[in-house]
C-alpha cells in the first residue's frame, strides 16, 4: 500500500505535464480522419505517448529532493514500486483511451471492433517491457548524473517501436500471407502471451531496480 502513496507523489509531481496527454487521443483521431490508412495507429500512437511520458518522474526529480522524498516513511522498494505503478497506470490509461478512440472511429465508420483488443494487448506488453527497461537503466545511472545518458535512454522507445514495427511488417509480408495467417490463427494466445510477458518483465524490473538502489546513497 505504501507503493500507492509513492505513486501519488509522482502523480502530483507530473500532473501539469500529464495534462498534455489529454490532447494525444484528439490528435490521433484527427490523424486517422485525415487519411491515415489504419485506425489501429490511433492506439499505437497513444500508447507510444504514454511510454514517452512515463520517464517524466525521472527527468523532473533532482538530487536536492532527497531530503524530502527519501525521508518519507517507506522503503526503497515501496518507492520503486510506486514509480513502476506510475508507468503501469499511464499505460493502462493510454490503452483504454486508445480502445475508446478506435471504437468511436469504428462505430462511426461501421467497421469491425475485433482486432482492437489484441492490438491493445500487444501494445500493453510492449509498453511494459520498454518502460521497465528504461526504468532499470534510469535507476542504474542514478539521479541527475548524466543528461546525455538520460537523453539516450529516452530515445530507446522510439527505436524499439520503429525496428519492431519494420521487422514485424517485413516478416508478415515475407511469407506470402502464411505468416499473417499463422498470427491470425493464434491471435488470442499471442495477445495473452504479450500481456504475460509484459507483466513478468514489469515485476522483474521492480526487483532489479530495488536491488540496484538498495545500497546506493541518495537513491
Amino acid at each position: 500500500m505504501k507503493a500507492l502513496k509513492f505513486l501519488k507523489v509522482d502523480w502530483l509531481r507530473c500532473k501539469s505535464q500529464l495534462r498534455v496527454m489529454a490532447i494525444l487521443p484528439l490528435i490521433a483521431i484527427a490523424l486517422v480522419f485525415g487519411g491515415m490508412d489504419n485506425e489501429l495507429f490511433i492506439n499505437a500512437y497513444v500508447v507510444f505517448g504514454a511510454i514517452i511520458f512515463s520517464t517524466q518522474p525521472f527527468t523532473m526529480e533532482s538530487a536536492s529532493e532527497s531530503g524530502f522524498i527519501n525521508m518519507l516513511p517507506g522503503t526503497k522498494r515501496d518507492r520503486v514500486t510506486g514509480r513502476y505503478l506510475f508507468a503501469l497506470a499511464l499505460t493502462l490509461f493510454s490503452v483504454l483511451v486508445g480502445v475508446i478512440a478506435v471504437s468511436i472511429y469504428d462505430i462511426y465508420k461501421d467497421t469491425s471492433l475485433e482486432p482492437v483488443m489484441s492490438v491493445s494487448c500487444i501494445l500493453f506488453g510492449c509498453a511494459m517491457v520498454i518502460c521497465s527497461l528504461q526504468y532499470v537503466l534510469f535507476y542504474s545511472i542514478g539521479k541527475g548524473k548524466s543528461n546525455q545518458m538520460m537523453a539516450i535512454i529516452r530515445m530507446i522507445p522510439s527505436f524499439v517501436m520503429f525496428f519492431l514495427g519494420t521487422y514485424l511488417s517485413d516478416w508478415i509480408k515475407s511469407g506470402d500471407g502464411t505468416n499473417l495467417e499463422w498470427v491470425l490463427e493464434r491471435e488470442v494466445e499471442l495477445s495473452l502471451l504479450c500481456v504475460l510477458v509484459g507483466l513478468f518483465v514489469f515485476f522483474v524490473g521492480i526487483s532489479v531496480s530495488s536491488r540496484i538502489i538498495e545500497h546506493k546513497d541518495f537513491a
Partner: peptide, 20 residues
C-alpha cells in the same frame, strides 16, 4: 536548500504529508 519538488504547490505538500 528547499528539498520540495519545484513544480509542486503548498496543496501538494499538504496532500503528501497527509498521505505519509
Amino acid at each position: 536548500e528547499s528539498y520540495f519538488p519545484k513544480e509542486m504547490r503548498i496543496s501538494d505538500i499538504r496532500s503528501i504529508q497527509k498521505t505519509f
